[in-house]
Amino acid sequence: MEKINWYGTYSLTLREIKRFLRVYHQTIFTPVVSALIFLAVFVLAIGNHKASISGIKFIDFMGYGLIAMSIVQNAFANSSSSFIMSKMLGYISDILTPPFGSVEIIIAFTIGAVLRGVFVGIAVAIALIPFVDYTLAHPFLLVFYVLASCTLLGKLGLLSGLISNSFDQHSAITSYLITPLSFLSGTFYSVQSLPPIFQQINLLNPFFYIIDGFRYCLTDKADGNITGGILFLMISNGIMYFILVKLIDKGWRIKS
């Protein structure tokens, strides 16, 4: 097994963290504004007609879902935008030059994605305090869900960056895959209200397990199988790691 260059990993990770903190108004504050707007629109439009969903007060159900969605979307956006930018601006060669290997690249970009997701989640949660009542049924499981979810979406973002050779291709992946999957995952509704066939289809949506598990950690109420969700996150993270190692080592779409 190849020895990991921890100092190089630290340096690349630090660059990733500084990159999104340098434009905090865009990377952290903008998702907060978006979450507040979503909450306001849905509560004003539906709140008076629906007291609760799955035994959870409507505004709380919405708030928890918006926090989870903000976390995973921004974790994906961080690694994907950073990697595609390195390809478009031409400094990807600096990253691919030894002593960096695939493992160091994956670790650094994933940690950057995790930290941005966590920062955004904390910021959104604080902004929703005046409107949402928080409970915490499973604190340790919540930590697992947040870290595992951000890790998975960070790796998916890295894969998107590998696939995309332009910002248009990157935007297409975000618009046609990531955004629909996150919006149709039970963020704004309980999947129990769907017809049985669509409930089964939604079980193939990774965002469903992430958002449902996050909400379960706060309320002790879930639409799906929590054990299945935990296993899904663990297995998916492992699969994504080995896929990325193979693709980066091969230089797929990043080496001429």
Results as ranks from 00 to 15, higher is better:
residue 118 V to A: 07
residue 191 V to C: 01
residue 177 L to E: 09
residue 170 H to P: 01
residue 86 S to M: 12
residue 191 V to A: 04
residue 43 V to E: 05
residue 201 I to P: 03
residue 224 G to I: 05
residue 67 I to A: 01
residue 130 P to N: 09
residue 256 S to C: 03
residue 148 A to R: 01
residue 37 I to E: 07
residue 190 S to R: 09
residue 206 P to S: 11
residue 174 T to E: 02
residue 30 T to K: 10
residue 15 R to Q: 12
residue 142 L to F: 15
residue 80 S to E: 00
residue 99 P to C: 07
residue 124 V to Q: 03
residue 153 L to A: 08
residue 168 D to G: 12
residue 160 S to R: 01
residue 135 T to R: 13
residue 251 G to R: 05
residue 82 S to Y: 08
residue 151 T to W: 00
residue 177 L to N: 11
residue 110 T to Y: 05
residue 60 D to N: 15
residue 249 D to S: 14
residue 132 V to C: 10
residue 197 I to H: 05
residue 20 F to P: 03
residue 80 S to T: 08
residue 128 L to A: 02
residue 233 L to I: 10
residue 115 L to Y: 04
residue 126 I to H: 10
residue 198 F to I: 11
residue 203 L to T: 14
residue 126 I to G: 07
residue 104 E to R: 11
residue 1 M to R: 14
residue 57 K to C: 02
residue 15 R to E: 07
residue 231 L to N: 11
residue 231 L to F: 15
residue 64 Y to D: 02
residue 65 G to I: 07
residue 207 F to K: 03
residue 227 T to K: 14
residue 16 E to G: 15
residue 145 Y to E: 03
residue 160 S to P: 10
residue 118 V to C: 00
residue 242 F to L: 14
residue 182 S to I: 13
residue 64 Y to I: 06
residue 108 A to S: 13
residue 126 I to E: 00
residue 58 F to Y: 15
residue 160 S to K: 09
residue 213 G to N: 01
residue 239 I to A: 12
residue 64 Y to W: 11
residue 95 I to W: 07
residue 238 G to C: 13
residue 229 G to D: 01
residue 41 V to C: 10
residue 251 G to L: 06
residue 116 R to E: 00
residue 38 F to Y: 15
residue 123 A to N: 07
residue 23 V to A: 12
residue 115 L to P: 07
residue 12 L to K: 07
residue 248 I to A: 02
residue 230 I to R: 06
residue 218 L to F: 11
residue 89 L to S: 12
residue 118 V to G: 00
residue 110 T to A: 00
residue 240 M to L: 15
residue 143 V to C: 09
residue 192 Q to H: 15
residue 15 R to S: 08
residue 240 M to V: 11
residue 128 L to K: 06
residue 150 C to F: 03
residue 167 F to R: 10
residue 209 Y to G: 04
residue 252 W to P: 01
residue 136 L to M: 15
residue 114 V to T: 11
residue 128 L to R: 04
residue 93 S to C: 05
residue 42 F to R: 02
residue 65 G to M: 09
residue 122 I to D: 01
residue 54 S to V: 00
residue 32 V to M: 04
residue 52 S to P: 06
residue 231 L to T: 15
residue 197 I to C: 01
residue 69 M to Q: 13
residue 210 I to T: 09
residue 116 R to Y: 03
residue 214 F to I: 11
residue 75 A to I: 12
residue 215 R to M: 01
residue 108 A to N: 06
residue 108 A to I: 08
residue 72 V to N: 01
residue 42 F to G: 03
residue 201 I to G: 06
residue 186 G to K: 03
residue 136 L to V: 12
residue 69 M to V: 13
residue 115 L to G: 02
residue 43 V to W: 10
residue 37 I to G: 05
residue 20 F to V: 06
residue 94 D to S: 15
residue 213 G to F: 01
residue 120 V to Y: 03
residue 55 G to S: 09
residue 125 A to N: 11
residue 67 I to D: 06
residue 172 A to C: 12
residue 85 M to T: 10
